[in-house]
Amino acid sequence: MRNPIRIALSAILILGLLAGCGSNVTLDTPTIPTPLIVKIPASVGLRLPVEFQHYVHDEEIIGREQWSIDLGNSNAALFTQLFGFMFEKVTLVSADENPADLPIDVLIEPSIEAFEFSVPNQSKTDAFAVWIRYRIKVFDQQGTEVANWPVSAYGKSQKASISGSQALQRAAILAMRDAAALMIMKLDEATGIGSMAAARAGNGPVPESEQEQPSDIE
């Protein structure tokens, strides 16, 4: 007769091993410190796509483990906070609202184009790394696309004294913070939002040079 305790222990061990083959990471809502910048004098609308509210990245590292990274609402929270710091006025615009009916200079619509990560087994280092590529589209009040800017961000965190899941979570947050830093430094230059707002405020036409799409500037 088989020992039931032994069977139970074996079952627990097998379940434990199976559980070890997959990792789930859920990001806490990140915050960025108040940046030392002068706000851009513009009133912007921010339209966040559905994926920003709940972005999940699933990936199986061949022969090793399954990772599921739930960014949740973190991107929406980050962009809302960031643009609040960057612009004088930010209005959240829902998908069914017409920007022409709103008192805004431009409409900004960010999206996630790609999310990638590496674990120590792949990089042969002690670090987790995350790459996120966002795309920032800017529309004028008539709904015409006036800028289209890709933002590539990178974050890296060592495993040292924290678990793999925590290190990956930290790497993702650092990548989002990296994106925020890049947007603070370059968004206005890459998209011309400030000069468009200034032209609208002066009721003057937007200069020809500012109507060009500064595409693929990083």
Partner: peptide, 11 residues
Amino acid sequence: DSLFPWFEPRT
């Protein structure tokens, strides 16, 4: 944090 974003890895 106190000097964000001037001492980020990128900047």
